[in-house]
Design a binder for these strands. Structure first.
Lengths: 226, 226
DNA sequence: TCCACCAATTATGAATTCATAATTCATAAT
DNA sequence: ATTATGAATTATGAATTCATAATTGGTGGA
């Protein structure tokens, strides 16, 4: 009996993929700030790997525009101008709109309920003024909406573009007014989901993102001036 | 070992990026068919490079989902199910709709005129039944519309997703009816551009893509059956 | 003192080498 | 004859080595 042993293959993640995730985390968390130069040997020392897999990882991140490779000059964490951010936000807006349309068609009642619970938690974080947990739950809600689309490509593209400026989204502090606005947006998002109104959901998701962009833009301009 | 004398041309662009383009072309042209196994040593021999840059290139293409890497099994040209293609077409549709909205706001009259000339050429290829030149000019028109958006991210994402199934788009033969339909679509695309009607352009671009998907789907299902 | 230029050092680009996992093929057992 | 087993071969994963471009630091000259 030829029982294939491949049935429960143990997870063997290639080194370069592990490094991709590791570096992405370092960049998202802000430990590697935008514009920071990446010294291959330094990171190799730190992670205990040779340059080969690290360089492969850098090439992948470069193709995602998370880092920038300059021939013979090395790697650096990508920086994005306000124009570039606006461009990315426009694209993400289109993706969110599509996500809204698809989600209401395919989401289960259980998933809607789960998002409602996340929503409650997020509101509580807002009321307690806890920024970091708020952002985390916020991200989970958006991820849940994209997961409900059942469209892997859509999810991947969304993650790709979000990751590219995740640090900006996380770091940009919201004014109390903007934060209240965000909560209002999310109330409408949840309502549109519960009514399975795709058009409304697409519209409010897009507007929500536009608000977020204004927050990021204001922060970047203040940063640049300071 | 003999001292390799490299020409200046290839010294400027990193090898792995050249290989990314080279491989992409091979895949788009169909020389490397979907599902084909990629033997590293074979391609290294063919291109006269070592495995290091080729493997870097494969990793980049894998992150674009143009190839699939299986640990210890090697690389293969990615195959896409009809469901995956539909997912990708949905996303491209959203991108095209956004492109339409932005293009009419930012395109110059000269660019519209250039697209009109491309349109004429495309129609002549259609009337003469020249498939390959038709597809080529068709692609140029769509690229021109995306270029008119002035949104680099949008262009990049579009190119990324189209490349992923370019072979399918190229290889799928259109029925005479579908081809006529495509020309009708393009008439409307040009008209919407000339009237700078973003809503109409977005709508017709999306519908045009839906037609294209039906062509590809029909072809794939016939292929699978045959 | 400042600038230009050249040597020394360092970092990156790419090839080669080494280790290990997967496949193939031959042999043996049922 | 067919299938299972195991050695041999092959291909991939990763480290190391080699080559070359860029940077740095110092010296000499104006």
């Amino acid at each position: 009996m030829t029982r294939t042993v491949r049935s429960q293959a143990i997870a063997r993640t290639p080194l370069h993929l592990q490094l991709v995730e590791l570096l992405r985390d370092l960049i998202i968390s802000g430990e590697l700030a935008p514009g920071a130069k990446i010294q291959e040997t330094v990171l190799c020392e730190r992670f205990g790997v040779s340059r080969t897999p690290l360089r492969e990882a850098l090439k992948v991140l470069a193709s995602e525009e998370v880092v920038v490779l300059t021939p013979h000059h090395g790697a650096a964490v990508a920086t994005h101008s306000i124009d570039q951010l606006r461009d990315a936000f426009d694209v993400i807006g289109a993706l969110e709109a599509l996500a809204g349309e698809l989600a209401v068609q395919r989401i289960s009642n259980a998933e809607i309920a789960a998002i409602a619970r996340l929503h409650e938690r997020m509101v509580r974080h807002f009321e307690a003024g806890r920024h970091r947990p708020y952002f985390e739950v916020n991200r989970q809600i958006h991820d849940a909406i994209f997961a409900a689309t059942r469209n892997r490509t859509l999810q991947d593209q969304y993650r790709l573009l979000s990751a590219r400026m995740m640090s900006a989204r996380y770091l940009a502090p919201m004014s109390p007014d903007r934060w209240r606005q965000a909560i209002t947006d999310h109330d409408k998002i949840l309502a549109a989901l519960q009514h399975r109104n795709g058009t409304a959901l697409a519209r409010v998701l897009k507007r929500h993102l536009a608000h977020k962009f204004e927050t990021v833009r204001a922060w970047l301009e203040r940063e640049a001036g300071a």
